[in-house]
Simulated assay, not measured.
Amino acid sequence: MVFPIVLFLVLSSFLLGQAAFNAGLPVKRWVVAGALLGPAAYPLFNSHKQLAYRKAMGKQGASINM
């Protein structure tokens, strides 16, 4: 029973590391988060990716205010 859980966590950390690399985020941090939290780290990753994108865009990505 332990082997499938460990395999699932390793696979989750690998996929989260690949996604972090593609998004330009720190890979080691997200690999460790994937290994510890499993798929529960994916919503955290998505929100962090969106915040990093907004920070990089600055005022250019702002919507029009009336």
Rank of each mutant, 00 (worst) to 15 (best):
residue 2 V to H: 14
residue 2 V to T: 14
residue 3 F to P: 08
residue 4 P to H: 11
residue 4 P to E: 07
residue 7 L to S: 14
residue 7 L to Y: 14
residue 8 F to E: 06
residue 10 V to I: 15
residue 10 V to F: 15
residue 11 L to G: 05
residue 11 L to K: 06
residue 12 S to T: 10
residue 13 S to Q: 06
residue 14 F to D: 12
residue 15 L to Y: 11
residue 16 L to D: 00
residue 16 L to Y: 02
residue 16 L to K: 04
residue 17 G to M: 11
residue 18 Q to E: 10
residue 18 Q to H: 13
residue 18 Q to A: 08
residue 22 N to S: 06
residue 23 A to K: 00
residue 24 G to Q: 11
residue 24 G to V: 05
residue 24 G to N: 11
residue 25 L to D: 08
residue 27 V to Q: 00
residue 27 V to R: 02
residue 28 K to P: 08
residue 28 K to T: 08
residue 29 R to P: 09
residue 31 V to D: 01
residue 32 V to R: 00
residue 33 A to P: 12
residue 34 G to Q: 09
residue 34 G to D: 12
residue 34 G to I: 11
residue 35 A to G: 05
residue 35 A to E: 07
residue 37 L to E: 07
residue 37 L to T: 05
residue 37 L to M: 07
residue 40 A to L: 12
residue 40 A to E: 06
residue 40 A to H: 10
residue 41 A to L: 04
residue 41 A to C: 03
residue 42 Y to W: 12
residue 42 Y to A: 10
residue 43 P to H: 00
residue 43 P to C: 06
residue 44 L to H: 02
residue 45 F to Q: 00
residue 45 F to E: 00
residue 46 N to A: 11
residue 48 H to N: 11
residue 49 K to H: 00
residue 49 K to E: 04
residue 50 Q to G: 06
residue 52 A to R: 01
residue 54 R to N: 04
residue 55 K to V: 02
residue 56 A to R: 09
residue 56 A to I: 04
residue 56 A to K: 09
residue 56 A to L: 07
residue 56 A to F: 06
residue 57 M to I: 09
residue 57 M to D: 07
residue 58 G to C: 03
residue 58 G to W: 02
residue 59 K to S: 05
residue 59 K to G: 04
residue 59 K to F: 03
residue 59 K to H: 05
residue 59 K to I: 01
residue 59 K to D: 01
residue 60 Q to R: 04
residue 62 A to T: 04
residue 64 I to C: 02
residue 65 N to H: 13
residue 66 M to A: 13
